[in-house]
Design a protein around this nucleic acid. Structure first.
Length: 488
RNA sequence: CGGGGUGUAGCGCAGUCCGGUUAGCGCACCUGCUUUGGGAGCAGGGGGUCGGGAGUUCGAAUCUCUCCACCCCGACCA
């Protein structure tokens, strides 16, 4: 009725937008390309943040904060880096407004022009490495293992809620190391942290791989990625971890003295995930009834709906269940709004993706039963009141696992291995998903394939064998298969 | 930046082609009564610079010009 959403099959991107809006996650703001993240959407982000943050700390990182603004000259110090970001930067040129002539209203005061323009950070490598120069003198100062939670701005031509917004929230880790190997190990470690988070918490299976030269981060030597598959068959880059070599150390002159009193450039990494993960979460699990959330990231894990409406006998039981579940670390909401009818609430919490719903009515209570409904499969069961304590934690685990298994199944149903151009196009058009194929290793061929198929090389998988073959486009020798997909 | 579309109440829309009373409908909101195990019913009520500006006209949501914003599809990107 009031909250129907477009079906996935009818119009996938409309379905996606409907979910974001109707589940109360976010909405477009008055500013082009920028969104308002609403409380329920932000609650999901907070759960992601707190989990990731503890994983970062467990791997030896600490948090800090660097400025929003970057002097223009900083950005241009690393050549590849400028090329990558120059075309999408917001630039601050003035620091004051004033009242204009009659009828003009507020205008930018032309006398308040900045000596040097400031860039609103699209990423913070430059300002951070400029700072690290002063922090690092000796091998004893290394490694530096810092993360920051921040907002960044990239002036994208076309934006989509969570997936690509002009301003977005993320974390960016920036580490400095004495040796090349230590930095590589760090980059790989953080890629693993991201993969573990995606799979264990988001229930979103990912493939770990390395980006081709063409797809790698501007300024990186190697970009390690995790790639996920969405329900429309398109791939989503869910997180990246970069081995930066000595590029930024050289650009910003960051050197240390080693044990032998020799001056060396520092080795670097950077790594980040963003609010885009929320978009990935939505597109991995949700259905035509609305959002589906994995229990580990659901702001509300269990909702209790008194049926048909709150009354003392029901509320006593509901409060008791709530207290018992909360003591096990489960978040519970009792919807005691007596103005809304149960059917309305059922639909509402399905839209919001609450994993488990408990319905308690007098009819059930007479038999000491509670109705337990799970969001992922829509199953409903009568469970004895006395068993709730043990049943719910197990059920939440089952849901978490079921979502992950379903996503894995979907990915394997939508993955292909092909050896000819015809099969390649056929797989992309009819099956979507990841297509494993041979490629001759050149950027020219990669771009040609992209132009002809709209598919990009998502990654060179790290955990696959080195089967030799010939390129699907050029027929030239190929050292190994790579993973193609159409992507977000 | 190219193509398509939309701007009318908090939200979703009709009305615009072919100008004409007081601009309408659904949801939401307020009041009351009846309801209440899958999105309640009835009655009453409040809420509008019709995206902005200029023009044509006795008269403009409607026609003309112009500007703006947003959405969708592409190219670019996390």
């Amino acid at each position: 009725m009031a909250k129907e959403i477009t079906s996935k099959s009818e119009n996938y991107s409309q379905w996606y937008n409907d979910i974001v809006k109707k589940a109360g996650l976010a909405e477009h703001s008055a500013v082009r390309g920028c969104m308002v993240i609403k409380p329920y959407g932000f609650a999901i982000w907070e759960k992601m943040q707190s989990q990731l943050d503890s994983m970062f700390k467990a791997t030896g990182h600490v948090n800090a904060y660097f400025p929003l603004f970057i002097p223009k000259s900083f950005l241009s110090k690393e050549a590849d880096h400028v090329d990558g970001f120059a075309t999408e930067c917001a630039v601050v040129t003035h620091y004051r407004l004033k009242n204009g002539e009659e009828g003009q209203g507020l205008i930018v005061d032309p006398e308040a022009r900045l000596e040097e323009e400031l860039i609103v950070r699209p990423t913070s490598e430059t300002i951070i490495w400029n700072t690290y120069r002063d922090w690092i003198n000796s091998y004893r100062d290394l490694p530096v293992m810092i993360n920051q939670w921040a907002n960044v701005v990239r002036w994208e031509m076309r934006t989509r809620l969570f997936l690509r917004t002009a301003e977005f929230l993320w974390q960016e880790g920036h580490t400095a190391h004495a040796t090349r190997q230590e930095a590589i190990d760090e980059a790989v470690q953080m890629q693993k942290v991201y993969a573990d988070f995606a799979e264990e918490y988001m229930a979103m299976p990912v493939i770990k791989g390395i980006k081709t030269a063409n797809e790698r981060f501007a300024g990186a030597v190697d970009t390690y990625t995790i790639e996920a598959l969405m329900q429309d068959g398109k791939a989503l880059q869910a997180g990246t971890s970069h081995f930066l070599g000595q590029n930024f150390a050289k650009a910003f002159d960051v050197k240390y003295l080693n044990e032998n009193n020799e001056e060396m450039h520092v080795w670097a990494t950077s790594w980040g995930v963003s609010t885009r993960l929320i978009g990935g979460l939505i597109m991995t699990h949700s259905d035509d009834e609305g959002l589906v959330l994995p229990p580990k990231l659901a702001p509300i894990q269990v909702v209790i709906v008194p049926i048909p409406k709150p009354k003392e006998a029901i509320m006593t039981v509901a409060n008791d269940i709530k207290a018992r579940l909360e003591s096990k670390g489960i978040s519970v909401k009792i919807d005691d709004d007596s103005r809304k009818r149960p059917g309305f609430k059922f639909a509402e919490y399905e839209m919001k993706g609450v994993p488990v719903r408990l319905g308690i009515g007098m009819r059930d209570l007479e038999k000491d039963l509670v109705e337990v409904a799970r969001r992922d499969t829509k199953e409903k069961n009568q469970v004895p009141l006395a068993d709730i304590d043990s049943h719910i934690p197990q059920l939440l685990q089952d849901i978490q696992e079921n979502l992950f298994q379903k996503a894995i199944q979907f990915r394997s149903d939508h993955s292909s291995k092909v050896d000819t151009w015809e099969d390649f196009i056929d797989a992309l058009d009819n099956k979507g998903g990841f297509v494993s194929a041979h490629w001759d290793g050149t950027t020219e061929t990669e771009i040609a394939i992209k132009n002809q198929s709209k598919a990009t090389i998502r990654c060179i998988p790290q955990d696959e064998d080195n089967e030799k073959g010939s390129c699907i486009l050029t027929g030239k020798p190929s050292a190994r298969r790579v993973l193609f997909a159409r992507a977000y």
